[in-house]
Amino acid sequence: MSSEAWGALSKALTRVEVSKNSFLVKEGTVCNNLYFLEKGCLRGYYNLDGKEITYWFSFEDNFVTSFYSFISRKPAVENIQALEDSALWSISFEVLNQLFDAHNDLERVVRIINEQYYIRLEERFMAMQFKTARERYEQLMENSPHILHRISLGQTASYLGISQETLSRIRSQV
C-alpha cells in the first residue's frame, strides 16, 4: 500500500474499546463498520431456537465484521460479542468506499482480506461437513491451540459443532 493510502487510512480509523460481554454487532441491525482487532478476543454467533451457535473466534491482528451485513447493507443475522476487554480500530462502510475511490491499492488490500476470510470460511465448512468431531478437535489443537486457553469449553464445543459432554470425552481420549 502506498504511503499516501496508508496516511489516508490512518486518519480515517477510529479507536474503539469494548468491554467483555459487550456487542459490536447485534442480529437485526446493519453492520456499518469494518474493524481491526488490536487486542482481545471476539466471537461470532447465531441464535437458533434460543441456542447460541458459535461459528468463529477472532484474536489479535485480525479483521472483524459481519461480512454479510457490511457488504450487503442488510441487517446482520449474527452477533459479534467481546469475550475479553478488547481494543479495535474501526472504519465505516461509507468512508472505506470513499478511500477505495481515491486509492486503488487500498481496495486491493481489502480484497485480499476478503479472500482470506473466504478461505477460512470454506475450510470451516469442509471441516464441519467431512471431518469427525475428534478430527475437528485435533485440527483445532494443531492450528489454534490458544482457543483452548482463552475460550470457555461450552463455546469451544459449539464452535466444533458438538456438545460439551462430547468435547470432554474427546479431550480425555487425546
Rank of each mutant, 00 (worst) to 15 (best):
H103C: 09
F67N: 07
R73I: 09
R111T: 11
S90C: 06
Y137Q: 01
V77E: 13
M126G: 05
G28C: 06
F67P: 09
G154C: 07
E115L: 11
S58R: 15
E107Q: 15
L37H: 10
F93T: 05
E123V: 05
T132K: 01
I91P: 00
I113W: 03
A5E: 00
I112A: 11
A5Y: 00
Q116H: 14
N47M: 13
T29M: 08
G50I: 08
R171M: 06
S152D: 12
E138A: 06
S172C: 04
S152C: 10
S158C: 07
Y68P: 00
E4W: 02
F67K: 11
L9K: 04
Y118Q: 10
N32C: 02
K26W: 02
Q173N: 11
K131Y: 10
S152W: 13
S10K: 15
F100I: 07
K39H: 12
E78K: 00
R136C: 02
Q173H: 14
N62A: 10
E142G: 05
F130H: 12
H149Y: 12
S144A: 15
A8G: 04
G44V: 04
D105R: 05
A157Q: 07
I162S: 01
E84K: 13
K131S: 15
E60F: 03
N32R: 14
R108S: 14
K20E: 09
G161I: 06
S66F: 04
E27R: 09
L148V: 14
T14Y: 03
D105W: 01
L148M: 14
C31G: 03
S66Y: 03
R124V: 03
T166N: 03
I170S: 01
L42M: 10
F70I: 04
N32D: 12
E78R: 00
V18L: 07
S163F: 01
A133C: 07
S90D: 03
V30E: 10
C41H: 05
G44H: 10
V25M: 07
H149N: 14
F36L: 09
G40S: 04
L160V: 11
L148S: 13
H149R: 15
S58T: 10
M1V: 13
M126D: 12
W6V: 09
I170V: 02
K26F: 03
D49H: 14
F100T: 05
L13D: 01
V25L: 08
P75G: 05
F100P: 00
R150T: 01
N104K: 12
I162A: 02
L96T: 09
L121E: 07
G154Q: 13
F130V: 09
D105E: 08
N32E: 14
V77W: 12
S10L: 11
S163M: 03
N33D: 15
F70K: 00
R171Q: 05
S3N: 12
R73H: 14
